[in-house]
Amino acid sequence: MRIADVLRGKGSAVATIDPGLTVSGLLGELARHNVGALVVVDAERVVGIVSERDVVRGLAERGGGLLDATVSEIMTADVVTCGPEDTVDSLAGQMTERRIRHMPVLSGGALVGIVSIGDVVKTRISQLESDRDQLTSYIQG
């Protein structure tokens, strides 16, 4: 199964944030969208990703003063991305190996979606259930 298939099922909406917004504003956006990470976009170009984990690390290092810092100060600028043509299996391996929970999907440099580790697990479980059903049907004749 390809990432394009996952996006077709879940949709391609992506919550994004401006790199100049404060961490306090970031927290409000994470809560408003009920997500664990936001893609950081500047002039329609992906420049980073920021997650709850980044906020926790920042708080541990800087304390409460972090709330006035900007998203660009705590975001991960070296974003690992994938394309719609990539397979779910390859993405599962990358996400596990690199300990990534959210991966933006780019097509021709444009942001077209985001896939979470939960999306990958859900898809793999669905694939396994389908395989099991086909085998059961084959065995039972």
Rank of each mutant, 00 (worst) to 15 (best):
L66D: 08
V55T: 01
V23F: 13
R99E: 04
R32N: 14
V50C: 01
A31L: 15
G113Y: 10
G109D: 11
S24V: 09
V79P: 06
G109Q: 15
A43Q: 12
V112H: 04
V6S: 00
E73M: 09
E52Q: 05
M95G: 00
S90E: 15
V50G: 06
S12P: 00
R45G: 10
S51G: 06
L135P: 05
I17Y: 12
D42E: 13
D68H: 11
L7R: 03
G93Y: 05
R57Q: 05
A13R: 10
T70E: 14
V105D: 09
V105Y: 05
I139L: 14
T123C: 00
G93H: 00
V40G: 07
L7H: 02
Q134C: 04
A15W: 07
V105C: 06
R98C: 02
E29P: 06
R99M: 03
R132L: 14
M1R: 00
I114F: 05
E29Y: 09
D131K: 12
E61V: 04
I114Y: 06
S116W: 02
I114M: 04
V23R: 14
G48E: 09
T16F: 11
D54L: 08
V115T: 03
R2P: 01
I114Q: 07
R132C: 12
A13K: 13
A31P: 03
L7T: 00
S72L: 08
K10M: 00
V39S: 07
G11N: 02
D18G: 12
G83C: 05
R32Q: 11
R53D: 03
S72K: 09
S107T: 05
A69E: 13
P104Y: 13
N34K: 10
Q127K: 13
D54N: 13
L38Q: 08
R32M: 09
R101G: 10
V39P: 12
I3D: 01
Q134L: 14
V23Y: 10
V23W: 12
V39N: 09
M75T: 08
L30V: 14
I139W: 14
D5Y: 05
G108F: 13
R45T: 15
Q127D: 11
V23D: 13
T136V: 14
T87M: 02
L135N: 03
A13M: 05
K10T: 04
R124Q: 08
A37F: 09
S130P: 05
V40K: 10
G36I: 10
D133Q: 13
G20H: 12
